[in-house]
Each structure stands twice: as structure tokens, then as C-alpha cells.
Amino acid sequence: MAADNKHDLVAITEKEFGKLERLIASLEPDIAMKTLEDDTCIKDIIGHRAHWIELFLGWYADGQAGKPVFFPAEGYKWNDLKRYNADLRQRQADLDWPDAVALLRDNHARLMSFIADHSDDALYGGPMKGANNAWTPGRWAEAAGASHYRSASKFIRAATRALARGVAS
């Protein structure tokens, strides 16, 4: 169930980030960079999660400024996510493991600052400007943070099991 107030949003975001942090801390860089069958690696997933926090913060800022908000990004529609994510992996190809982890930590701090700087009403009082749907800024923040952290943790656990079985390219 999604958070519906600032206190719960902070709690779930910190809880899921803590779980992800523990998994990240347990990984050796060579494991994080090892390509899996789907042509991704753990580093790609961490870079992706960091990037989506940037996207959310940009969407919010553009909506507040009355600018067009492009979901997920200019030139892409939601049904283009596979292509967008593949393009993102190419843009982040030179990102190494320590830099991906640092980017995630930095963007998590930016997300937490965003949440801290907004009231319950600003986070949950109505739809996010420019989003063209009923999701509140708090719901979008949870999707970019806690929900993405949870799915990244799940991916890392599955990837490390696959790598232990020798299922990598």
C-alpha cells in the first residue's frame, strides 16, 4: 500500500534504501559489473534507479514552472520504456560501480531533501502539476524512491543467485 502522508513516505523510503544499501555494500565491483543474460548488470540497475530520481525531480520542477512535462522523457512515451532504458544504459556505459553507487546515494539525498522541504499538503494534497493523472507528488516520489529501491533489491538478489549458478554472459 502506498504512503499517503509525509511521515510514512520518509519511513518507507529510508527503509527500502537501507535494504538496498546493505545489498550494495555486500557486492564486489566485479560482481556488480558482470553482464547477465538480459545484457544488463547490477551496476546498470543502480544507475537506472539513480536516474529515475533525477527524472522525477525534473518532472516536478517543470510542472511547478508551468513547463511541459515529458513522461518519461522528451521523445519517449510510456510504451517506449524498453527503448528508453536501453538508451539510458548506453548513456551510462562508462559509469563504473563506485560512480553508480555514489550517484544513487547523491540522488537519494536529493530525494530526501525534496520530501523534507515539502509539507503533507504539498506532497499529498492533489495531483502533481503537469503529470496529467491523479498521482500526487508524494506518490511519484515513492515510485521514484522506495518502489524502485525495492525492485532493485529484488533484482540484485536474483542476479547474485544467477551469478552463483554461473548464469551470466
Rank of each mutant, 00 (worst) to 15 (best):
S169G: 09
P72R: 09
H118A: 09
R150D: 11
K77E: 14
L9T: 10
H118P: 00
I53Y: 11
R89M: 04
A32L: 04
P72C: 10
G47C: 01
R105T: 01
T160Q: 14
E142H: 13
M112S: 07
R161M: 13
K154W: 03
L9Q: 11
D120S: 07
A25D: 14
K15M: 12
I12E: 09
T40I: 11
I24V: 15
A2N: 02
V101D: 00
A116E: 07
I46R: 04
I53L: 12
D120A: 11
A146K: 11
D44R: 09
D4K: 14
A146D: 06
S147G: 10
I53G: 02
F56G: 01
P127E: 15
V10C: 12
D94A: 03
C41V: 02
A102R: 12
D38Y: 09
S113H: 09
N85R: 01
G166F: 04
H48K: 03
A102W: 08
A152R: 00
V101Q: 06
A50M: 01
A73D: 11
H7F: 06
F155K: 14
I45N: 01
A93M: 03
G66W: 13
A93H: 03
A3Y: 05
P137I: 02
W97Y: 08
R89G: 06
G138E: 05
W52T: 08
A109G: 08
T13K: 05
P127C: 07
K15E: 15
A143Y: 14
L81C: 05
G166A: 08
W97E: 03
V10P: 10
L55A: 06
D62I: 02
K77P: 02
E54N: 13
D117T: 08
N107M: 02
A73Q: 12
I24C: 13
I12A: 04
N85H: 08
L95E: 06
N79H: 15
A158L: 14
H108M: 05
S153N: 07
L123Q: 08
L104P: 00
E28Q: 14
S153G: 13
K82N: 12
R22M: 10
N133S: 13
G63M: 07
R91P: 01
A152K: 01
E54F: 05
P137Q: 02
K129E: 14
W59T: 06
G145R: 04
K43E: 05
K19C: 02
A116Y: 09
G47Y: 02
N5R: 11
I115F: 15
K82W: 11
Y76Q: 09
A3C: 05
T40M: 13
S26A: 13
R22L: 12
A109Q: 12
H108G: 10
Q64W: 04
H148N: 05
M112A: 03
K67G: 01
D39T: 11
K82S: 07
H51D: 01
W140E: 06
W59V: 05
A152Y: 00
A122P: 00
R89I: 01
A131T: 04
L95P: 00
Q64C: 10
D8Y: 09
V10E: 15
D44I: 00
A2S: 03
R150Q: 09
T160K: 12
R139V: 08
A65K: 15
M1H: 13
I156V: 12
L27R: 06
A164Q: 08
A61C: 05
T40D: 03
K15A: 08
G126L: 07
G126K: 10
N85T: 00
P68L: 14
K77Y: 08
